[in-house]
Amino acid sequence: MRRSLVALALCLALGPVPGAAEAIGDAERGATLFARQCSACHQIGPEAQNRVGPRLTGIFGRQAGSLADFNYSKSIVRMGADGLVWTLETLDAYIANPKALVSGTRMNYRGMAEATDRADLMAYLRAYSDRPQDIPESEPTARKTDPALSPEILAIQGDPAYGEYLASECQTCHQADGSDQGIPSITGWPAEDFVVAMHAYKQKLRPHPVMQMMAGRLNDEEIAALAAYFATLQ
């Protein structure tokens, strides 16, 4: 008796796939959002083809930039090689601000600001992943977190003089003139994108080990100072 109750509880917890997707957000509302904001470039479903953007069927658990038959930006391929895999967490960050997560992405989309909109959209997308049961919410890598930064962090006015000193460390690899050879340019970025990107490394949402280490030891003021400095570089 006791045993069968436990079994029943497990069934409820894992649930059928649609139930799990619904736990992320409202998939029906997500379908409407997809039709309005994504479908001009992306298809999803068993018959989906690549269009301006890659097909999104089976997006969860896929390495970024890994469809052999799609011509991706260099940046997203590099991110994928560095270990970026699409999970609820990483996809949420990407949809929120594509260029903040993958600087050189060709996805020309301003981002979806509302966390509930993104959750609904992902609930819809997730229904079309090959094995959605592999990514239950309980899995740590798939835990949905809101990477959005507090307004206080975004509002910090960086000290450009401090930024200039800190930036000298960046410029061992990232060339001040904006050249991009194997290492992306960070010159002339809008300050807010810079702050979001650095915090994404600090939180280990972005995958690169050098950048995770560099960002990891910078505090909020130091990130703001760097952003203030790089935003002014021509």
Partner: peptide, 23 residues
């Protein structure tokens, strides 16, 4: 590590060389 990551690491080193010599 897989070949794509090793290749990216090599390409990153080329970027570093260009970066540090400019610096």
């Amino acid at each position: 590590e897989d070949a794509a990551l090793r290749k990216a690491t090599y390409e990153e080193s080329l970027g570093w060389y260009a970066g540090i010599t400019a610096d």
